[in-house]
């Protein structure tokens, strides 16, 4: 079974040379730590920066330079700052190549829910609805089950939706799956995890064809 860093490490393999990538808050943020250093990638943060670098050294932080998680960051050579309208123009206009974000639930048709639990938690959607409605290439990073042990890969989402039919790929602590017109297609198993365990943890339709290889991370 993978931990959060393991999930991030596996997703990093999906990041290709020349990609502009938007990383959501949580596990997605960790992906930046595992991208190969022999390829050129720029990270976009929707609050208005392209070419995000690592966290600043202690004492060098600048309150005017943060990411969408409100964390202090640095910029790399070639970086740019811009306003929110321009930022979402990049996203809505499909100039960003890959979006990686977390989710509370994903349905077998690609619906995603990640912004609200009615009556309990209301934080808001932030930029997630704009991102999922526009991006062509969306990978969800999440745990396969919730804290109660219930599957987060469902036939139908139970929580208010963030977007419809938009998720293409999911990487969890147990597996890598594609979202296809027929449901979740199992591509890879996490180290030490059996197909049976994945079947048990998946409520939505799971397609298992042939031998399922273990992830190479």
């Amino acid at each position: 079974m993978l931990d959060k860093n393991g999930i991030a490490k596996r997703i990093a393999k999906e990041v290709k040379d020349g990609y502009y990538v938007n990383l959501g808050i949580g596990i997605p943020t960790l992906v930046a730590n595992f991208v190969r250093d022999d390829i050129s990638v720029e990270f976009q943060s929707e609050n208005g920066v392209l070419g995000m670098g690592p966290f600043p050294f202690e004492g060098e932080e600048d309150a005017d330079i943060i990411n969408a998680g409100k964390q202090t960051i640095t910029t790399l050579p070639g970086a740019s700052f811009f306003d929110s309208v321009t930022s979402f123009g990049m996203i809505r206009g499909q100039h960003v190549d890959l979006t990686i974000l977390g989710a509370m639930e994903v349905a077998e048709n690609g619906d995603i829910a990640n912004w609200k639990i009615p009556g309990k938690m209301v934080k808001g959607m932030g930029g997630a609805m704009d991102l999922v409605a526009s991006a062509e290439n969306i990978i969800v990073a999440m745990m396969h089950t919730n804290r109660a042990g219930e599957s987060k890969l469902l036939k139908k989402c139970t929580l208010p939706l963030t977007g419809v039919g938009c998720v293409k790929k999911i990487v969890t602590n147990l597996a890598v799956l594609d979202v296809t017109p027929k449901g979740f297609k199992l591509l890879e198993r996490a180290p030490g995890i059996s197909v049976d365990e994945i079947v048990k943890a998946t409520e939505g339709n799971l397609i298992v064809e042939g031998d399922i290889p273990e992830m190479d991370i």
Partner: peptide
Amino acid sequence: EKRIEQLTVRKV
């Protein structure tokens, strides 16, 4: 004041 919400730094 320009408060920082999430001070995140790396060690030298």
